[in-house]
């Protein structure tokens, strides 16, 4: 049985470990914190599987590879809601909607009544919207826990240590791997979780705004995740201004958010390379899988597949960077 080591048990590490188990490897996972939690960047994710919307600014591979994500997560037994994404803009910013529509694929234009049929709570609030039909969302924390539990059941050993390379090793430490990958930088994201049982939204809603764009992702029991700032900084402190922006935008989307319960405010630094695309870097027997930026749940499945193909099938994957260290 081939032995493999995974360092880092965030979304990248757990996805890689899952692919390794599927190939029959004996896998050991290192992470100073064993259970998925605030220590992992992916803990703070929105969980949108929205390759088309991301295509507004992301490069083509994100759109293409991201389309595989929903199916992969479903195959692992993770609950994935496939209801698409709704995109709206306030009246003053209505041209933002035209611009967004020009730049993405896979959307249909809705008038006010079609929007009301999809999301009754937005009825009367917007006279135009986009429905990006082939998108999905999941609860990232539930997804991480699910992978973790299943890996343990399948015999994967989890060790509560920072870990070290040992034979075939997949380094999935995210921003913590900056010591080995100096091109890596942190892009701060701040998010808010609210509980608003009065509001019913069944799919992620993006509110376009030239300065304060917002997305709202519905979660179980009337919870909503509001995200996310994007600041060139590896600071992890939660800032009042960012929270004000997110909450103001949510209030503009629906005033009932004003009565919501403030459940959680989070922040972390997304690991990113200069082109904001992920990389698979091979150094001897160590394969780095990193730079997932704001596309952890969207791209980790494809990256995990590529990284294991590189290790076992000797195929040179997209995003491959040969040993230049």
């Amino acid at each position: 049985m081939t032995r493999a080591t995974v360092i880092g048990a965030g979304v990248a590490g757990l996805c890689v470990a899952t692919e390794l188990v599927a190939r029959g490897c004996a896998v050991t996972v290192f992470d100073p914190v064993l259970q998925p939690g605030p220590h992992h960047c992916s803990w703070w994710a929105g969980g949108m599987l929205a390759p088309f919307c991301e295509g507004e600014t992301a490069e083509e591979p994100v759109v293409r590879l991201g389309q595989q994500a929903a199916r992969w997560w479903e195959r692992q037994g993770v609950g994935v809601t496939q209801r698409g994404t709704v995109v709206v803009a306030l009246n003053r910013d209505r041209r933002e909607l035209d611009r967004f529509a020009r730049r993405i694929e896979g959307h249909t234009l809705l008038d006010g009544s079609a929007l009301a049929a999809l999301e009754p709570d937005l009825s009367g609030r917007f006279d135009r919207a986009l429905h990006v039909t082939a998108e999905a969302h999941l609860d990232p924390r539930a997804a991480l826990r699910h992978l973790r539990t299943r890996l343990e059941r399948d015999g994967v050993t989890f060790i509560a240590e920072p870990g070290h390379a040992d034979g075939l090793t997949f380094d999935c430490r995210g921003h913590a791997a900056r010591d080995a990958l100096p091109d890596l930088r942190g892009v701060k994201g701040e998010m808010v979780v609210l509980r608003a049982p009065d509001i019913r939204l069944t799919r992620p809603v993006r509110l376009l705004h030239p300065r304060f764009p917002l997305y709202v992702v519905p979660r179980a029991d009337g919870h909503f995740m509001l995200g996310a700032t994007q600041i060139e900084s590896d600071d992890r402190r939660r800032r009042v201004r960012s929270v004000l922006e997110l909450l103001s935008a949510a209030y503009a989307l629906h005033p009932a958010f004003g009565e919501a319960e403030l459940v959680e405010i989070g922040a972390d630094a997304r690991p990113a390379f200069p082109d904001n695309l992920p990389r698979i870097v091979r150094r001897g027997e160590t394969i780095h899988v990193n730079g997932l930026f704001r596309h952890g749940f969207l791209l980790a499945p494809a990256l995990a597949r590529m990284a294991t193909e590189l290790a076992f099938d000797h195929s040179k994957p997209e995003f491959y960077y040969a040993d230049h260290g």
Binding site: L184, R185, G186, K188, I231, E232, S233, D234, D235, R237, R239, R241, P274
Partner: peptide, 16 residues
């Protein structure tokens, strides 16, 4: 202002 976060947290971007 926003990138610094009171220290050199934006340094990686500034290097670029």
């Amino acid at each position: 202002r926003r990138e610094a976060g009171g220290d050199r947290a934006g340094a990686a971007f500034w290097d670029l």
